[in-house]
Design a protein around this nucleic acid. Sequence first.
DNA 1: GAAACCATGTAAGTTGTTACATGATTGG
DNA 2: CCAATCATGTAACAACTTACATGGTTTC
Lengths: 187, 187
Amino acid sequence: MDVKTFLLGLLALGEASGYEIKKRLEGPFSHFYDASYGSIYPALTKLAKDGLVDCESLAQDGRPDKKIYRISPAGRMALIDALGEPLLKDKVRSDFLARMMFAALMEPRHLEGLITERLESHRAVLAEIASDEMGLADLDDSNDQNSLKFVVGFGDAINRAAADYIEENRHLLEASAFVRREPAAAE
Amino acid sequence: MDVKTFLLGLLALGEASGYEIKKRLEGPFSHFYDASYGSIYPALTKLAKDGLVDCESLAQDGRPDKKIYRISPAGRMALIDALGEPLLKDKVRSDFLARMMFAALMEPRHLEGLITERLESHRAVLAEIASDEMGLADLDDSNDQNSLKFVVGFGDAINRAAADYIEENRHLLEASAFVRREPAAAE
DNA sequence: GAAACCATGTAAGTTGTTACATGATTGG
DNA sequence: CCAATCATGTAACAACTTACATGGTTTC
């Protein structure tokens, strides 16, 4: 799903500015979708130009106008159309797993650091989800609430499984790495 | 990790042609890395030009020469350097989860189809991993074998967790979708 | 006889990121 | 006082995908 469609969907759940959208994407959705300001702002401009969203400019003191976007009836139809299209394969590129493939070429200390770092990042996500910092509470529609519960719960399940797996299997990487290097080189 | 570095890493595990690399990427690594011919072939050409890999052309009957690439000493050093750099965030973009966020706008039948399709794709990956079609057996180095065991096992754990989660929680999406639509409209 | 596999490569196009530009306000 | 937050936008760039080009061989 491209950025335009995704933003249209987010606006179907409630009005927002570009800045607010970006902040939300940094929360509990970041595990399956991400977008930078550099793609969000142009996308919103394009959606407005195509009549799929309405835009209200709120003048502010020292800052640029805050622009509140709302989905239009045409936008809702376009979104429904887009949701009817065939499912695309997920795109994943994991720097972590790619490196683990070549763990045998890494310094043991460095390797250990990467693994620990990764474990901590999974734990941080789990903590964030558990503490419900995600403000899904502000949705009127209980269907939408259930949808968000589903995707956030999905992130919880995946991060939990990943953390558990790493803990239980890091020895596969670390044991061999430690063996291979300076067996008894009393430095 | 960009395509060039990843290919360099794969070649560190053993020689291969561009075509063979692509085939391997369609196997048990596809859950965390993917690349098309259009990125593989130019990357190999570039690596050879930079002296990081050596290339041997094998003439063949009706086909283009098969080009076997092997990592060079310089390539090995470049790879080790690259592996020492700071870890990048995984990039994930899930069309499936993005759509589930907007499940309330989908036709119930269509939604059900998407969920079932997704479940089956997880199960297919699990079956493929279980049947060990991945030919990691042809590695001499036991360190490399352990590394591959780790990343493939990671895929197994994640796919299992995802499938279980979907089975247990699809009702969150489907229940609400069915309710909202023609409560008793005897078509 | 059609589809899939083997085998490489290029060019055009899409999509998105990074860095820059601007600048007041609030919290530590 | 420095960093972070609020707030939008553009332009240059990077990276990758898709489709095209070529064409024999093997499998159903």
